[in-house]
Design a protein around this nucleic acid. Structure first.
Length: 228
DNA sequence: GTCCAGGGCCTAC
DNA sequence: GTAGGCCATGGA
């Protein structure tokens, strides 16, 4: 699937572990996700779709100021109120509709109990989330991992970009392919998946943006193939 | 003014 | 089945 398709499985595994240890040594534990409750994780995961976290934070601050960071209060808002509060996160009409569909499932199916909605077999809960229009694979996996400690690896634009530059996958690799690469070579450990993905995001923000492919301080510099 | 960001859905081939 | 268009804001 990628330019290191010739790499044997053990080499991929070694590379993935090397990357993790370098990032952890450089940046330390990240203690993710930036949220105080599983419900805030769900909100952040939806609001951050194709959007900078700084914009998401503005929207979450608005919701906090409106005392709407818990299910019952958020469900009590009408569509236009919700749109206005989350406007800074962009795509606010779509995201408001997605949030309301999620809330309907949560309130009707689980009496507003987030833990109840996210509890159970990982694939079963994942399917439950994917059935909500507006929640795709990345959003569902972020909710599963960061909101309920399910051992599932989150693939986002940062992860793809870094893996592509490391030659671990092609730029065209699918979400499922990249996820499978991580999950077949790493033990199913929610804490490690959490830390690993968080470290990739830190790296990407510091020195692996589109505009700035690398920097002298990059802990992975010797590993990069600069393939994109 | 232009580009980009922690996606996902829909439509036209 | 898949490439391309669309959704929208705010910061660099």
């Amino acid at each position: 699937m990628g330019n290191r398709s010739e790499m044997c499985a053990s080499a991929v595994k070694d590379m993935l572990n090397e990357v993790y240890h370098r990032l952890y040594a450089a940046y330390g534990p990240q203690d993710w996700w930036p949220a105080q409750t599983p419900f805030e994780v769900i909100l952040g995961a939806i609001l951050t779709q194709n959007t900078r976290w700084e914009n998401v934070r503005m929207a979450l601050d608005n919701l906090r100021a409106a005392a709407a960071l818990e299910p019952q209060a958020l469900a009590a808002l009408d569509e236009l109120q919700l749109q206005e509060l989350i406007r800074p996160s962009g795509f606010f009409r779509q995201k408001a509709a997605t949030l309301r569909r999620m809330l309907q499932v949560l309130m009707d199916g689980y009496a507003g109990e987030v833990d109840a909605m996210l509890r159970g077999d990982t694939q079963h809960v994942r399917t439950r989330l994917l059935d909500i229009k507006g929640i795709g694979p990345e959003t569902a996996d972020s909710i599963l991992l960061y909101g309920a400690q399910h051992p599932i690896f989150v693939i986002d634009a940062y992860t793809r970009r870094i893996c592509s530059r490391l030659g671990l996958c092609g730029a065209e690799a699918s979400y499922a392919q990249v996820q499978e690469m991580f999950m077949t070579h790493l033990c199913p450990d929610a804490q490690k998946y959490n830390e690993y993905h968080a470290l990739l995001v830190v790296l990407a923000k510091r020195c692996c943006t589109k505009a700035r492919p690398t920097c002298e301080a990059c802990p992975l510099q010797e590993l990069c193939s600069f393939s994109s």
